[in-house]
Structure formats: structure tokens, C-alpha cells
Amino acid sequence: MIDRRLGVLQAIARHGTVTAAAEVCRLTPSAVSHQMQALARELDVVLLEPVGRTVRLTPAAHTLIAHAEALTAQWEHARADLSAHRSGDVGGTLRFAGFSSAAAVVVPKALDLLREEHPALRVHLRESEPARSFDLLAADEVDVAVVVATPSIPPASDAAFDQHPLVDEPLDVLVGPEHPLVGRDGVALADLAHDPWVCGNRGRAYHQLVTLACTVAGFAPDIAHFADEWDTGAALVARGFGVALVPRLADLPAHHDTRRIPIRTPPVPTRRILAAVRAGSGHQPTIAAGLDALRRVTATDLPALDP
């Protein structure tokens, strides 16, 4: 119903280059350039200006994007209004995206609720990094994205998406069995300022989370190892190669001998978990049911530490 080239232009605005937009839109850079040239000719305006090896959006392009966001949101509202003319239980298909911890813990519990309460509803889950989840939303490849708030995701003011806070999840310190802090019932993050750290790879949400938390606590972490999988990170921590921050929801492998210690001295790091949908889509019955299930799951107490 809406010219798909508008979505390509929005991708260029979000990612800053034709190449990056082509990747998320599953097109070649030349196809993206061709589409933008054709759209500019049809509208008789200049949309992109070359700046070195990148491009800059013109004022006309920003005006067009604002209209595209309004059109998309209105279409989502229309789909919600049309649902009133359908009878029966909530049905159809609901597609989720979630980052690793959410995909393993939060979303499956929500899927259980949906399966029990809406048996006619088909649900799907795709594990995805937060920034990528917004690309999937924009491309209409998923309907609900469960993400952690990091600098890499669109701001809450982005008119293309509606973002719903779900829970602020505390982070714990993970240390090996011989670490000097073992046995304490709480620590300050600054107590580990001189330790080597195990962290996710640069550009990943976990890397941003750890470095930001340490910066707020007054130090830059000495990152000795990079690990994106909890199994790898826990293995390094268990053998004394570093310490790590772990979200309370993270289900660590039991075969590695590690110790969780809560951070009780401010600043206590947390991560905010959000549910994001396309602007205007939250009133569609399937998406509304998904958001409700996520809110109910995250309203329960987070897993407690063993005494």
C-alpha cells in the first residue's frame, strides 16, 4: 500500500550510508541508488547529496521521511480499526525478535501465555541484536521486538516506532571461585576497577552495556577477553581470567564454577528492557496481546540470587 522506496530512504536515514541501507534492506547498493534516483525524478526533488564516499539527506528528503512515518503509522492504525470487523478469538501470526537473554527467558514465557490464551494465534521468535531488531520491525519482518536500551537503537523520540518500557533489570558481578570478593553479600562496581574484564565484542549490545556501567562507576574497564556467548565468558571467569557483568535474567551454564555477587553500592548498574513495535501498530489485537503477555511476564519478580 505504501511505496517500498520510502522504507529504503528511511534506512539510509537510520544508517547513514547507501551500503548499510542496502544490507538491511537486502538489496545491492546499486539497486538502492537506482531506487532513490527514480524516486527523486518522480517527485522532482533532490533527495541525496554526495559527501565524499557517503551521502547526506536533503531537506526535501527529511520532509518526505516525516510524511512516510505518518503514512506508515496511519496504515497500522487502519489495520487495527479493521480488526473490529473480524469475529472470533485473536488469530493470525505474531512475530517476535529478541536479544539473547530475552529470547531465552522473557519471550518464551510470553509465548506460553499466548499459546494458552489464544490457541488460534501462531507465534514465531527470531533471536536478534537490538539494533537489527529495529531494522526487522521497519521491514515488517517482525511485529514486536524485545530489546535492551543501548546507544545503538533509535531514540524514544523516533516517530517510526513506539517503545514500551518493560523492566529495569539489575546487573550482577560474576567472578571465579578464588576471587577475593567471594563470600561478600554485596559489592561496589568500583571494587573491580583493577580487575581484567571479559566483555562482548565491540559494537554488540553487551559491550556497550559493560563499558557504560563502568564509566558511570568512575573507571574504564581493562578488557582482556571478548566473548559474546555466556558459555565462553563464564568459562574464562571460572578460570580466573577476568570478571564480568551479568544481567539477572542471564541463565549461566552450570558446568562452570562461577559466583554471582549483587552490586549494592550506588551506582547500581541496570539495563532497561523495552518492547518496540511499529508506530500505530500496538492496537492491533495480535500485537496488543503480545505486548500484554510481555508486560505480565516482566511484572513478576526477577530471579533472585541464592543466599
Rank of each mutant, 00 (worst) to 15 (best):
D3W: 02
G7T: 13
H15K: 13
H15R: 15
G16P: 12
G16W: 11
V18G: 10
T19D: 14
T19C: 07
E23Y: 12
E23R: 15
V24C: 11
P29W: 07
Q37E: 07
A40C: 02
R41D: 10
E42T: 02
V45F: 04
P50F: 05
R53N: 13
T54R: 14
R56C: 08
L57E: 02
L57Q: 01
L57I: 00
A60D: 14
A60H: 14
A60V: 02
L64G: 01
L64K: 03
I65D: 07
H67C: 08
A68R: 11
E69G: 11
L71E: 15
T72C: 07
A73I: 06
D81V: 10
L82P: 05
S83G: 06
A84Y: 11
A84P: 03
V90L: 05
G91F: 08
R95N: 06
S101L: 06
A103V: 03
V106R: 04
V107A: 00
E117R: 15
P119C: 02
P119A: 04
A120D: 15
A120N: 13
R126M: 09
E127K: 11
E129Q: 13
S133N: 03
S133I: 02
D140E: 15
V142F: 09
V144E: 09
V147E: 09
V148M: 12
A149T: 10
S157W: 08
D158E: 14
D158M: 05
A159K: 12
Q163L: 13
V173N: 03
L174Q: 02
H179T: 02
V182D: 10
G183Q: 08
V187P: 11
A188L: 08
D191P: 05
A193I: 05
G200H: 12
Y206N: 12
V210K: 01
L212P: 03
V216F: 03
G218C: 01
P221L: 01
P221T: 00
D222K: 13
E229I: 00
E229S: 07
G233Y: 06
A238H: 11
R239H: 14
G242K: 01
L245W: 03
R248D: 13
L249K: 02
L249G: 07
P253M: 00
P253K: 00
H255P: 09
H255L: 09
D257E: 15
I261Y: 09
I261M: 08
P262M: 00
I263A: 00
R264Y: 04
P266C: 01
V268L: 04
V268R: 11
V268D: 04
A275F: 10
R278W: 09
H283A: 15
G290M: 01
G290L: 02
D301G: 12
P303K: 01
L305K: 05
P307L: 10
